[in-house]
Simulated scan of single mutants.
Amino acid sequence: MEPGTWRRGIAATFETAREAFEAAWTELRITIPDAAFAEWGHDRDWRAGIAAKRARGEKLDSEIRSTLMRRVCGTTFDSWKPAESYPHRAHITAAQAANGTRR
């Protein structure tokens, strides 16, 4: 929501408040793009997934340590397994030398 688009007020009865809300919502709804509702739904579902993982006692993907590396060509290898990492060291070193991160 953009600043200044919120509404507030006090009503004497619930019915009066509900009518005022419905009128304000009808006016505001036409200004909200459908993509905003889709974005909200995606965010809601993502947060529910996070809460479910936490409730089950699971770690999030970002909390799980990984030693996997991926080369630009798409090859994935485990950097802690010498047999897998040695063939790629020459490519990594060459790429680092080319972009100036290693001399």
Score class of each variant (00 low, 15 high):
M69S: 09
W46G: 01
I32G: 01
A17S: 05
S85G: 01
D61V: 05
I50E: 00
G74F: 01
D43M: 07
F14G: 12
W80F: 09
P33L: 04
A55P: 02
E58I: 01
T76N: 01
R8W: 11
A36Y: 10
E39D: 13
F14C: 10
W40C: 05
T75M: 08
A20T: 14
R71N: 11
E19P: 02
R29S: 13
G100P: 08
P33H: 00
T5Y: 10
W80P: 00
W40D: 07
A83L: 09
T13S: 15
A38W: 02
L68G: 06
E2H: 09
A20F: 05
F21Q: 08
R8P: 00
R89L: 15
H88Y: 07
H42K: 13
K53C: 08
A20R: 14
M69A: 14
T16S: 06
A52M: 04
R44I: 09
A51V: 07
R44W: 06
L28E: 09
A36V: 07
T26N: 13
P82H: 06
A55V: 00
E58H: 12
I92T: 05
H88R: 08
A90V: 09
A12L: 10
I32C: 03
W6P: 01
E22I: 02
W40Q: 09
R65H: 14
P33K: 01
A11V: 02
V72W: 08
G100F: 03
R47N: 11
N99I: 11
A23T: 15
L68Q: 13
A11Y: 12
F21G: 11
R8L: 08
G100L: 04
H91V: 15
D34C: 02
A52W: 03
A38G: 06
K53N: 12
W46H: 12
T31L: 06
A52D: 14
A20D: 09
K81M: 10
E15K: 06
T93W: 05
R70I: 15
S62V: 07
E39Q: 12
N99R: 13
A97E: 14
T26M: 09
E63H: 00
D61C: 07
R8H: 07
K81F: 06
T76Y: 00
S62C: 08
I92H: 04
S85F: 13
Y86I: 14
D45N: 07
A38H: 03
